[in-house]
Computed example of a mutant assay.
Amino acid sequence: MSGGMREKKKNARYKSIVKTAEQLFLENGLDAVQMQDVADADGIGIATLFRYFPKKERLIVAVAVSCLEKIVEDFQRIVTANSSAYDRLEQVLDYLMGHPTEKEEVWKSARFREAFESYASFAKKSLDGIEEYIETQKVIALILMKIIEDGKVDGSIRKDIPVKEAIITIVNAYGTFGNNISLKSAISYLEEDIAIHIQQRMLKEILLSYLRP
């Protein structure tokens, strides 16, 4: 087998392991899933799994990075669309909403990111490979800077506010709220509670109204 074919096969196996692990983590939780569970589900030996991921936390980080990379691809598509900066920002927030019945993969990724960030925050030391996750977050921030610069030019976003700080704050706040509210969707609400999608829509309107000229 040529070197190129071996590398292609190796990359395919890596992606398969990460996808399998993500499914197991979502179904059972980060703590409950063991490396042997991942190996069995992916149809490989435990020794093969450890060659790719020497310890479980490295696999967890790899899944987290994979989730962020999906966002990078979708944000790049949104940011390069032929519309005003304000409209593109609204599309970003709609994307982050990720309703489970309409955008199942987005919603699942949001669920995992929420679990991962909680897991990482309670870790006694920095997770192995966390730098890659942080770098991917930076890539997302750079993509969003395109909206900021375009908003200054097309006038669709106020110029009398610190636009960079405002947009980053809005995206972070909305993303965190969206993750939390989606995670609670399986919990029984009282009759008088407000539906999740209504809360999301109202928050989006509140945040975007701050940016309108």
Rank of each mutant, 00 (worst) to 15 (best):
Q36S: 12
A41V: 11
L49G: 06
G29P: 14
E22D: 03
A39W: 08
A41R: 14
E22M: 10
M35D: 05
D31L: 11
M35H: 06
D40C: 04
E27P: 04
E22A: 05
T20P: 00
A47V: 15
V33D: 02
I44P: 01
A47S: 13
L26N: 11
T20N: 01
F25W: 05
V18K: 00
K19G: 03
F25R: 07
G45C: 10
M35R: 09
I44T: 03
D40R: 11
T48P: 07
D31T: 09
E27W: 12
L49R: 09
T48L: 09
A32I: 01
A32T: 06
I17H: 00
L49C: 07
L30Q: 04
F50Y: 15
D31W: 13
F50R: 15
G43P: 05
L26T: 13
D37G: 02
I17F: 03
E27D: 12
A47K: 15
K19W: 02
G45V: 14
G43M: 10
D37F: 01
V33K: 05
E22V: 04
I46T: 07
E22T: 09
A32Y: 02
Q36V: 14
D31I: 09
K19R: 15
A47W: 13
D37S: 09
A39D: 08
L26P: 11
K19M: 09
D42E: 12
A32F: 03
Q36N: 11
D40Q: 10
M35G: 04
D40A: 13
A32N: 06
D37P: 01
I44G: 02
A41E: 09
E22Q: 13
V33Q: 05
V18G: 00
V18L: 03
L30S: 03
I44H: 05
E27A: 15
V18A: 01
D42I: 04
D40F: 03
V33S: 06
A47M: 14
F50M: 10
I46E: 04
L24R: 09
K19Y: 02
D40M: 06
E22I: 06
V18E: 01
D40T: 12
N28T: 08
A21I: 03
G45H: 15
D40N: 11
A47P: 04
G29A: 10
A21F: 05
G29H: 14
A21C: 06
Q34Y: 07
A32S: 07
N28C: 08
V33G: 04
T20C: 04
F25D: 03
A21R: 07
I17P: 00
V33M: 09
D31Q: 12
K19N: 15
D40L: 10
L30E: 04
